[in-house]
Design a protein around this nucleic acid. Structure first.
Lengths: 344, 344
DNA sequence: GCAGCCTGAGAAAACGCTTTCTGAGGCAAG
DNA sequence: CTTGCCTCAGAAAGCGTTTTCTCAGGCTGC
């Protein structure tokens, strides 16, 4: 007959009774408060062990006003990029005793807002990956979500650090690489139209076009997954481009798969590049030239920024910018001589 | 001057004051209790909207004794299998208004126990993927974790459903497939030694060997990731086997990559199979023959089982067994010797 | 016209913890 | 020997909700 409380679970009261002390004393002992007589403390600890007492985190959270939990909102848990961010975040947070609550918005921007609010209320802080949300809405809700760290978005709201990957620069590096290989007709297989990171890529391409007026860059509609790439084969071939910049590695892999089915050689006939350098990029055939983003590290940094905010420390870095690193592998090669010959 | 409580956040008390009613009435209105005068209810709602009042979930959880959150413990968030389970679970739970708290044990079995307990206390139920935990320990802690759903483990504890993939049958199906192709020397590139699912595969192989005494099956040490496969090339070649059953798709991909580097042809020289049918398996070169596990669906089912437990419904199915489905693709082909013999 | 019922709202208890406040007892100093 | 400080444990007040309990007032029914 151990249990006293009706809930069935043993609580602080049970331990107090068993040890013959007050609730307060049990709490003090459990929290390592040393203003308790060692002998009594030992008795309490013994009782706690015997009853297998474990403090109820909900009660604790209510009293302390903190949950030791952070939330993360991602647009798609199936996307390797967000999986990696989640992984880095979770690992880093766990190191400091924090847990992660996930919220998947399934690419629905209206969900992003609601989920962010709900998640935030249950947690001590929030990491927000909301590529679809409008700037206006982000601006609107950001203050109420603090402590908040943004991924690949920025906001004017004070005290909201952003971790952004410089997709614009990355895409320029890739384009330069293709030009160096002799390609003069490029095509960009775009991501989701309203995606923030897609816009950054487009800006990068504009800069690239300004710097290389002689290079033709065709814009093609795409998406963010295998199927988008696989389904874009026709459009790619029609464009006549010999160097294809896919929105990300997934799209690139889908495209390569489709090109392979058509009997085309990569990079012999067409060079293909990805973005992100997901783990699988090293193992495709041919291995994929891409721009590596230290994405797990980004998740880790997100935690460090959030931790500083939670602890009310002055964040030394109000945000960070990550430079993708060009990874040249086997999916890119010299432009086909025949095509250039036809040109003349 | 809206805020009254010291915490800064507006609470039920602020709304009560603003609407000129008691806390109780506000609570009733917020929870759709209809024993409130419509006019008063409207006034409360107006006040709530104006103050942007959102109930504090922690206080709510304490009062209600539920958190609307479930936990999942996974051994490795980098593993596509667990990512898929998480995805399926999260999606299904979200549909019912539940959130998911994740705990990554990083393959450390002692962590599994602690994390499971901690996660469970914060949640209304738990999904446990703990392949490394000993049976004894699982047996010990399972009762205290209920409502609990196990993945790929079973326990004698009552009311703890298990969702298990029949890895044994799957591995037999794959082996049969290779034998049908004329392979007589097989090798199994094993997973982590203490992994429960690896043991199931080994049992399946024993059954297979008993049924096919003429087939030689070599056991090789492996692991569960790319590198394990990539690093096993030498051992695979030494074994002289022509049909390799890799622990999972990742290992298979690593192995194929290594074989490719050695100038060997898959499936011309050696046939390679995976397990799981992760999304990338369709896009490797050659595409990977594997055993498909409906893993996202498994995560979804985990939620349904857990939901039944939480709601105290009689779970019609105390657990389920999933049969992998052989997916024959291009990484397996006729055994070299057999082909030569036929031609000669 | 009054007893009793019903409706509906406020007071207060409960959830499980932390922490401040209070006060009893021991001890040192005057 | 008394005053006052200090130590340490218990009482009680939060934390923000929900829910039971209580009770006032308006009805119905006789």
């Amino acid at each position: 007959m151990v249990r006293k409380s009706a809930s069935g679970r043993i609580g602080i009261a049970d331990v107090a009774v068993k040890a013959g002390v007050s609730h307060a004393t049990v709490s003090r002992v459990m929290n390592g408060n040393f203003t308790v007589d060692p002998e009594i403390a030992a008795r309490v600890r013994a009782a706690a062990v015997e009853l297998k007492y474990q403090p109820n985190p909900v009660g604790r959270s209510l009293a302390l006003g903190k949950t030791d939990t952070i939330g993360i909102v991602v647009p798609d848990l199936a996307n390797p990029t967000f999986q990696a961010i989640l992984r880095g975040l979770s690992r880093a947070a766990a190191q400091d005793g924090y847990r992660v609550l996930i919220a998947d918005s399934f690419e629905v921007s209206s969900e992003e807002t609601i989920l962010a609010g709900e998640a935030r209320r249950r947690c001590d802080g929030l990491v927000l990956c909301a590529p679809r949300m409008s700037d206006a809405e982000l601006e609107e809700i950001a203050p109420s979500l603090r402590p908040l760290v943004l991924i690949n978005r920025t906001t004017a709201a004070a005290g909201v650090p952003s971790l952004v990957v410089d997709y614009g620069q990355g895409v320029q590096d890739i384009a330069e690489h293709l030009v160096d290989l002799g390609h003069t007709r490029l095509a960009f297989l775009a991501g989701p139209p309203r995606s923030a990171s897609n816009n950054l890529r487009l800006q990068g391409l504009e800069a690239f076009k300004a710097a290389h007026p002689q290079v033709e860059v065709t814009m093609l509609e795409g998406g963010s997954d295998f199927d988008a790439g696989h389904g874009a084969v026709d459009a790619v071939l029609e464009s006549g481009a010999t160097g294809i910049l896919a929105f990300n590695d997934l799209v690139a892999m889908g495209l390569m798969s489709g090109l392979h089915e058509r009997g085309l050689d990569v990079p012999g006939d067409i060079s293909v590049t990805g973005f992100d350098d997901i783990p699988f990029a090293k193992y495709t055939t041919p291995t994929l030239t891409t721009a590596a983003v230290p994405i797990t590290e980004l998740g880790e940094q997100a935690w460090h920024q959030l931790r500083a905010l939670i602890r009310n420390e002055e964040s030394d870095a109000p945000g960070s910018r990550y430079q993708p690193k060009l990874e040249v592998r086997a999916s890119t090669g010299p432009a086909k001589a025949a095509r250039t010959a036809v040109h003349g």
